[in-house]
């Protein structure tokens, strides 16, 4: 009885720690990637997307965010897995698909980018709306947790160890000076990269240091 009680207590402590950790729910969550049929349909879709992205640069800087994608693809429910040929033809994509194609576009431009996962704070009212919308489309709501959501984007390497975080679904760079609380704020980020950055301190994002491969909570 004594041991069982201790285990129960330990379990409660861990749960409490997890509850306090905004990213815990998505600890083992992989970032999104588009699937490929291995056939011409997906080849054409991918080539079109990458050539179109370069065209849309209009001579602008290669480090510019591909805002045109958000104009073409609204943000909304997406059933996974999704293939290239399907994704590029759709009117609506979720943040995972937005981020995946933005990541591919950056890479095709020759700039270094990494998949990035975010946890953001919104409000129960907002998440209730999204929950309903996703459920109506019969799509998983795993990304919603009360007033907090899981989101995806891209980390763009702009210097030796400096990154900018592109929110492909919003069409903006996330503000590194933002407060780590409040509606729309970024609570945590995980950048999927391998290697030593910043002499082991990780990526520099504004005043923050973010170690690759691990959730960084603000």
């Amino acid at each position: 009885m004594y041991l069982a009680g201790a285990e129960k207590r330990q379990d409660l402590i861990e749960r409490e720690a997890e509850r306090r950790s905004c990213s815990a729910k998505w600890q083992h969550f992989p970032f999104s990637t588009l699937s490929h049929h291995g056939e011409a349909c997906c080849d054409i879709a991918r080539e079109w997307l990458l050539a179109m992205d370069f065209a849309q640069l209009n001579g602008g800087d290669l480090l510019s965010g591909p805002r045109w994608m958000r104009q073409k693809y609204k943000w909304g429910p997406t059933a996974w897995p999704i293939h290239w040929c399907d994704a590029v033809e759709r009117d609506t994509l979720d943040c995972g698909a937005h981020a995946a194609i933005a990541h591919e576009a950056f890479r095709a431009r020759g700039v270094t980018s990494y998949p990035a996962q975010f946890v953001q704070q919104y409000s129960p009212d907002a998440t209730e709306q999204w929950q309903k919308k996703w459920s109506e489309d019969d799509v998983s709501c795993h990304w919603i947790d009360d007033g907090v959501i899981y989101h995806e984007g891209v980390a763009l390497l702009t210097g030796e160890d400096e990154v900018k975080l592109w929110d492909a679904s919003a069409g903006w760079w996330i503000n590194p000076r933002q407060q780590p609380h409040g509606y729309g704020s970024l609570l945590a980020v995980r950048i999927h990269a391998e290697g030593q950055f910043g002499v082991g301190d990780g990526f520099r994002w504004g005043e923050h240091r973010i170690k690759p491969g691990a959730w960084h909570e603000f």
Binding site: E47, L50, A51, A55
Partner: peptide, 19 residues
């Protein structure tokens, strides 16, 4: 802008060749 278009068209051409 024209020179950017030229580069852009080359990318489309390469995609067309490949496909």
């Amino acid at each position: 802008q024209w020179w950017h278009l030229f580069e852009s068209i080359l990318k489309w051409c390469r995609a067309i060749e490949k496909l």
